[in-house]
Amino acid sequence: MNHETILLEYIKQELLRGRKSDLKVEDDLLSNGIIDSLGILQLVAFIEERFHIQVPDEDVVFENFQSVKVLSDYLAKF
């Protein structure tokens, strides 16, 4: 599975708990209230555990977490 699919599944199942099954990779995660501040931190913890990477503090910024697609593009750099 690629990053997008894994992240999309995690957000749908763990953060949204099946509430928004039509979530798309381009959807704005914060502006649409899909995930909140603590959700971002949970997402970071999941990424580090699942993909075995360390996300530097400096990279935990809105611009890298705006959507699943943007986040996947960021993760592709590792």
Binding site: L38, V61, F62
Partner: peptide
């Protein structure tokens, strides 16, 4: 996280 939401 309000600062986070503001972005750059």
């Amino acid at each position: 996280f309000a600062a986070f939401a503001a972005g750059r």
